[in-house]
Nucleic acid binder design. Structure first.
Length: 485
RNA sequence: GGUUCCGUCGCCUAGUGGCUGGGCAGAGCUCUGCAAAAGCUCCUACAGCGGUUCGAAUCCGCUCGGAACCUCCA
């Protein structure tokens, strides 16, 4: 099935075609800067990329090579890994007098936490071609920077290397993803303008000169050494080329990265390699919390772990993100999370019912095709879910033949290869251990019920609830469940 | 100041000029001693004011309200 995607380059929805013309698709996702636990906004971004690669594989039948970088060098990782940092944890290891070593221990700690977190929301490590660390690609970055200087679009100033944007703009269009209006830049936002001797205020840094006690790498250039560390934008250009080869098929990231990060990445790769970065650029919208952008000062900032600590299943977060279209702002609220939790369970109960072996009537299974058609249209998950719920509303598993159920199970299995929030299996028998005293209460209540002593039965049920268990009557007797949360 | 997006039922989320979108909540019913759970049924909304049109949630204009980006950002 042809996949259609909104391309930020053209600002239109296009039929997707691979660079190679074949079935291999190279997808590059701007990953996290690992200086802390990821927040739910980050999660949305990574779940969008995961959705994209799953739809490409399962609906588009492509062989996807998915790369997500891990940024392990920037101001925050340097600051928080430095000697005396309050952010240093014992689990990271022992700090030494080597800042590069401390940086590595610090970032590897949070990189592992990141992998745990994305795994919990259903992103599978096996789906990645690789997850490169930026500091493992210093050499390719330096080579790219040399190319850019040699081609006349970079210059050295006080040990820093800058991209000469003015020269570049005279040759190539700058603003392919984002209309850059330098005439009306907001007053007062001229970061670093006084810190360095730059030729132009809009030039961005490719390589930052070493500062005291900060991590650095030697950078031999033209007989000189320029010890320092890479700028933010250069890593994606170098890793994309080194690992997958440019041009990529699809480059993804959050909308905020369109400018300057991705715009600069395009300029660098073209200036240094003479290559376009990607044929398709896909950007996901932001997540807001209670109608506002997440920020620590507003008190609406949540890491994934903040949410799961409240007892929510990470897969409910995944389902919440899929319930809105990736290109729309999603308003995160806990009541919304509660709603989506129940909706997800309804589908799960339907799937469990398909595994019920009683035999009855029959139904035709085209639900996957309909869902896939919606997903092929610019990853329209809300439409796909609408189709799925309508199907469930019009289908009663108890009236289906064994053959129909088996066919439907396979349909749901494929749907779940994309959504990844259900268990396509028979309902597991729960083997929770109920304390003897609770069972004793339940038995006493059963007897009271048989004796038609309902007042006694109700008070015993209340006593059981008091101890954290829910008693439900069945035809044969009763069941006991541990209360959630 | 510049650029862009949005406002849909109590809440969330789709919407392609005409055809009750989906989820959650809520109401009723079935089943239950009563509950719980589950299932069934019901629940016709488009910020405001103009305009275009036979017909507007959808197109145009204005007003009001919200959000994002404009060199840390997913």
């Amino acid at each position: 099935m042809t996949i259609r995607l909104f391309n930020t380059l053209s600002k239109t929805i296009e039929d997707f075609q691979s660079v190679s013309g074949g079935s291999t698709v190279k997808v590059y996702t701007c990953g996290p800067t690992v200086y802390n636990y990821i927040h739910i906004g980050n999660i949305r971004s990574f779940l969008f990329s995961d959705l994209l690669q799953r739809v490409l594989r399962i609906v588009g039948k492509y062989d996807v090579q998915w790369v997500m970088n891990i940024t392990d060098i920037d101001d925050k990782t340097i600051r928080d890994s430095a000697i005396g940092s309050k952010e240093w944890l014992n689990d990271m290891g022992i700090q030494s007098d080597n800042p590069n070593h401390n940086l590595r221990l610090f970032t590897e700690y949070f990189a592992q936490k990141f992998i745990e977190d994305i795994h919990s929301v259903g992103i599978q490590t096996a789906h990645f071609h690789t997850m490169p660390r930026a500091t493992d690609y210093i050499e390719p970055m330096q080579q790219l920077i040399r190319n850019i200087i040699d081609n006349g679009y970079g210059y050295v100033s006080e040990g820093n290397v800058y991209f000469a944007l003015g020269d570049w703009m005279a040759k190539e269009h700058y603003g392919k993803l984002f209309t850059v209006d330098t005439e009306h830049f907001k007053a007062g936002v001229r970061i670093d303008a006084d810190e360095y001797d730059r030729e132009s205020v809009s030039d961005f840094v490719l390589w930052k000169a070493r500062k005291n006690n900060e991590p650095y790498w030697d950078f031999p250039y033209n007989g000189y050494n320029l010890p320092g560390r890479p700028g933010w934008h250069i890593e994606c250009s170098a890793m994309g080329q080194d690992i997958l080869g440019l041009p990529l098929d699809i480059h993804t990231g959050g909308v905020d990265l369109r400018f300057p990060h991705h715009e600069d990445e395009i300029a660098q790769s073209k200036a240094g390699y003479g290559l376009d970065t990607a044929n398709y650029w896909c950007h996901n919208e932001f997540l807001e919390v209670e109608g506002k952008k997440m920020s620590k000062s507003l008190g609406n900032f949540y890491t994934l772990r903040d949410i799961t600590d409240k007892g929510y299943d990470p897969l409910d977060i995944r389902f919440l993100m899929l319930s809105g279209h990736y290109s729309s702002v999603i308003n995160f609220t806990f009541s919304g999370l509660d709603a989506v939790q129940k909706a997800r369970k309804r589908v799960q109960d339907f799937v469990y019912a398909l595994f019920d072996t009683r035999i009855n009537g029959d139904a035709s299974a085209t639900v996957f095709h309909d869902v896939a058609t919606a997903l092929a249209d610019n990853l329209h998950t809300p439409k796909a879910l609408e189709i799925l719920f309508s199907f469930i509303n019009n289908t009663n598993p108890a009236t289906l033949t064994a053959e129909s159920k088996l066919a439907l199970i396979e349909e749901f299995r494929t749907i779940n290869d994309i959504f990844g929030v259900w268990n396509i299996e028979a309902k597991p028998q729960e083997h929770i251990i109920i304390p003897d005293d609770i069972i004793a209460l339940a038995e006493r209540r059963l007897q009271a019920k048989k004796d038609k002593n309902f007042a006694e039965a109700d008070s015993l049920r209340a006593a059981i609830a008091e101890k954290g268990y829910t008693l439900k009557d069945t035809k044969e007797g009763y069941t006991l469940e541990l209360n959630e949360r």
